[in-house]
Write a protein that binds this DNA or RNA. Sequence first.
DNA 1: CCCGCCAGGAATGTCGACAATCTTGTTGAC
DNA 2: GTCAACAAGATTGTCGACATTCCTGGCGGG
Lengths: 212, 212
Amino acid sequence: MSRADSVTDTLRQAILKGRFEPGDRLLEVALAEEYAVGRAAIRSALLELTSGGLVKREANRGATVRRISIAEAIQITEARAVLESLIAARAARNASAECHSELRQIIAEMEEAVSDGQSQAYSELNGHMHCRLREMSGHHIASQLVANLRDRAAHHQYRLALMPGRPIESLEEHRAIVEAVVAGEEDTAAQAMQNHLHSVIDVLTRWGDAPR
Amino acid sequence: MSRADSVTDTLRQAILKGRFEPGDRLLEVALAEEYAVGRAAIRSALLELTSGGLVKREANRGATVRRISIAEAIQITEARAVLESLIAARAARNASAECHSELRQIIAEMEEAVSDGQSQAYSELNGHMHCRLREMSGHHIASQLVANLRDRAAHHQYRLALMPGRPIESLEEHRAIVEAVVAGEEDTAAQAMQNHLHSVIDVLTRWGDAPR
DNA sequence: CCCGCCAGGAATGTCGACAATCTTGTTGAC
DNA sequence: GTCAACAAGATTGTCGACATTCCTGGCGGG
């Protein structure tokens, strides 16, 4: 599973980066030629991405990039809310002193990105912070599920960061999360994470009511 | 994906039913011959089950039935706890009158199974009730995640039902969940589900401290 | 003019064979 | 007697070709 693995990663990144739009067909032969591998490698990559929720496959009709509706993005974020609350609580319980300073460091970089108006950089820092919190939590199961969910809604997530005023609000919420984690207050951390993602849900909901 | 699909289900059931023990090797050629299909079908089935968490694959070393430690089973149940709480709350919000009577019906059958000492039947009713609650919740994302997690811990789940006195305790917890759902009280339903799964976690924890 | 049927093309599903990699048992030197 | 290198076996990874299924467009009948 060496070449197929790298193909899977390449394809996943291609989809996440927007190289393929939702609804685009993913033809096995075309991809096989593009990446210079056999169809078997492409097939196993598509299978993997299908169970990851990024790709939709219909019997004998091929694979397409999955289109995530606003309603589905809301459900995804709801699921993330409860799982990341658990993660935040565990991070508050387990994080070491070095972790604490690392989290503060990320917050500092976020502040810089926001004040400089660098949406792209802020979005990446956002992802990085959630990723680090997952690792600090020591909760493999929840981490894996959340990482999956994040990929699925990545498209909407990206557009979220471009909303004017959104990064400022988001930064405030992240600050609250980090403060609680550093203080070791599990319940507060969980609540702060819940608040953060509910705020995301609110934005998505308003988006759903008045599309675009 | 027609034959490979059925092979996937067959293999999944075989693992869940205990036809294969944790750690057993899943040789592609052997399985291909046993189910009278090509290796390709087996491969795609193994890929699917791998991302489902039931089998472990190592590069060039084949697939084995995944061994779930007590610690991992606890994490799985913790993740289930928060997700099923969400599901219970949504079920309380959305369930129709017919759903309510169906849930009461399942409780009645559970009482019968417990008083007759039928562990096997109780375990199946247990699974059926959680499954129906998932469908009633209308929360596709959480439902899918929970269904996955349930499969992963199925082995431990099964042994749980055989613990003396456990079904009685479990039945009481399920009664509380159904009452809250029928009453339409979201928060109460979520809390009842949380209590139920925390009780499972307690049993697993005691199991971990004093194995077997 | 519209509907159903049929053939052609395209893409997936399946299979068998070959190549690459890992494990295991053996042999030989020290 | 022990350890390392080696060779044989076994198993997965990869590829190409064929079978099957589905969609598309054209044809003929009503």
